[in-house]
């Protein structure tokens, strides 16, 4: 009998407090390679904090986080975190592109400067990624000259240029006008179909239902319920989840 393949991301009883406020109160979560996991939940329930813990932007108080071969809670210095940041990329709600650099420079910078990759190789990768999100002709533009939807697609390309194993998306369509939401969701859908492991925090319930292999519902710093989307959205068990879905659907 074949060994079962362990999940690529595994959180075990993760706790995190900011000062005296405990924000994560024992979060456990598993994501299989190639799967898409969505995290939903009310504002302030700790969704963003979970993502930030996974790529080590936030250090945890107890519990453990493993991403592929990285034991995240043992990475104490910025230097030790670099290999993790190579394998886990993150896209933010506010895009956070570097405004003083062109689109192409935004994409090339980190692979060349941090990962010390060959500039020519990175450039051809960047160009093909930009073409994939229909921005091949905007490489020389500055972020300020692009629409929100275009900026967010560049941010996704910048994250992909790190050639990560896992992509984290934190409400990446929340700041966008409705017509731009679609173009960004389209890019994420393509990624998911290509087999990229994705963890998304999102308020787009229909998109979550369509794309996710599993959906986690957080409230007050704990995972209240998790299940495949059909079951979670159409047969919610916990009353808190039911109340939440009544409000957002």
């Amino acid at each position: 009998m074949a060994e079962p393949i362990p999940p690529i991301v595994q959180l075990t009883d993760v706790r995190k407090a900011f000062g005296s406020v405990e924000v994560l109160k024992g979060i456990s979560m598993e994501v299989d390679a190639g799967n898409v996991v969505c995290i939903i939940g009310p504002s302030g329930s700790g969704k963003s904090t979970v993502l930030r813990c996974i790529n080590g932007l936030v250090s945890i108080n107890s519990g453990s986080i493993r991403v592929d071969t990285h034991q995240v809670e043992t990475l104490r210095t910025e230097k030790m975190l670099v290999p993790l940041r190579h394998d886990v990329s993150m896209v933010f709600q506010q895009y956070n592109l570097f405004p003083h650099k062109t689109v192409l420079e935004n994409v090339l910078m980190a692979p060349i400067q941090v990962l010390k990759r060959n500039p020519d190789e990175v450039r051809s990768l960047a160009e093909s990624l930009l073409a994939k999100v229909q921005l091949a002709d905007r490489g020389d533009a500055y972020p300020g000259q692009l629409s929100g939807g275009q900026q967010q697609r560049v941010a996704i390309v910048r994250a992909l240029a790190m050639e990560p194993k896992v992509m984290l998306f934190d409400e990446v369509t929340a700041a966008l006008d409705p017509e731009m939401v679609k173009e960004v969701l389209g890019v994420i859908r393509d990624l998911a179909n290509e087999g990229m492991t994705c963890i998304l925090v999102t308020h787009e319930m229909r998109f979550a239902e369509e794309i996710a292999d599993r959906v986690y519902f957080t409230d007050g710093g704990i995972i209240v319920e998790h299940a495949p989307p059909k079951q979670l959205f159409h047969n919610p068990e916990d009353p808190r989840l039911r109340a939440f879905l009544d409000k957002v659907l």
Partner: peptide, 17 residues
């Protein structure tokens, strides 16, 4: 803005860089 620090750190940059 703080977001610049955050996205730079997420890309593997260290404080000095």
């Amino acid at each position: 803005p703080d977001g610049q620090w955050e996205s730079a750190r997420a890309l593997g940059y260290r404080r000095g860089a």
